[in-house]
Simulated assay, not measured.
Amino acid sequence: MTETTAPENTPQTTIVFLLFPGITQLDFTAPAQALSRMPGAVLAGVAASRAPIATDSGFSIVPTHDFADCPQADILCVPGGHGVAAALGDAATIAFIERQATGAQWVTSVCTGAFLLGRAGLLQGRRATTHWAYAHLLPLVGAEAVDARVVEDGRVVTSGGVTSGLDFALTLIGRLRGPTVAQAIQLAIEYDPAPPFAGGHPNRAPQAVTAGLKARVYDAAAAHMEAALRA
């Protein structure tokens, strides 16, 4: 279903999402929800096999394609998650990204998916963003870290942590189908953030909250990611 009437000559746009064990489901499902409503959009969720992919939320996602039968992407999107560190060492996954990126109009990532783009050589010399807790690692893949929710550098679009995937999707819809279509989709999914706490980024969160979260989760997670990137 789309929120606007598509002209008869609206081109089909194939949007391929890479799936892998340990994916953060919202990195995938948030932009997928917005992009699926874009006129002409055809989505594919692709993994090494069609076996269910375990997410970080306690449920699994069933891919629509595997690497062998995946259509060529017009938009390639690589989500993130704690499973990225393992995926960095998987030659078939990196080769798939390289192969798809060659023919894609747009190459994109959400959260730590940026490091998979980087491992495939797609961020060398480019400006990029990722989840705030890992941004200091972007130079390890040749990228210049930018503190922003969405960063466009040529045909490469990277977005920050988790919920930034919606911002990236709406930005790209605006590029492809115009701002009126993007605004209609934003309205349809009622994306009108009014969070109960003004603390979704370290620039605004209480220092104690940021320090506690880093100590409990992200110091170790970033060190694990750094080790995988240097391997």
Results as ranks from 00 to 15, higher is better:
Thr2Phe: 02
Thr4Leu: 07
Ala6Tyr: 00
Asn9Ala: 15
Thr10Met: 05
Thr13Asp: 00
Val16Ser: 03
Leu18Asn: 06
Thr24Leu: 14
Leu26Lys: 03
Asp27Glu: 11
Ala30Val: 15
Pro31Tyr: 09
Ser49Glu: 07
Arg50Gly: 12
Ile53Val: 15
Thr64Tyr: 10
Ala68Thr: 14
Pro71Glu: 05
Asp74Thr: 00
Pro79Ala: 08
Asp90Asn: 15
Thr93His: 07
Ile94Phe: 12
Phe96Arg: 00
Gln100Thr: 05
Ala101Lys: 05
Gly103Trp: 03
Gln105Thr: 14
Trp106Leu: 15
Trp106Arg: 15
Trp106Pro: 00
Val110Met: 09
Arg119Gln: 15
Ala120Phe: 09
Leu122Tyr: 01
Ala133Trp: 07
Leu140Gln: 15
Gly142Phe: 11
Ala143Pro: 12
Arg149Phe: 06
Val150Asn: 05
Val151Cys: 08
Gly160Gln: 11
Gly165Ser: 07
Phe168Asn: 00
Ile173His: 03
Leu176Ile: 12
Val181Leu: 03
Val181Asn: 06
Ala182Phe: 00
Gln183Gly: 13
Ile189Gly: 02
Glu190Asn: 03
Pro196Met: 06
Phe197Met: 04
Ala205Cys: 09
Leu213Glu: 13
Leu213His: 08
Ala215Ile: 00
Arg216Val: 08
Asp219Phe: 02
Ala220Leu: 07
Ala220His: 10
Met225Gln: 06
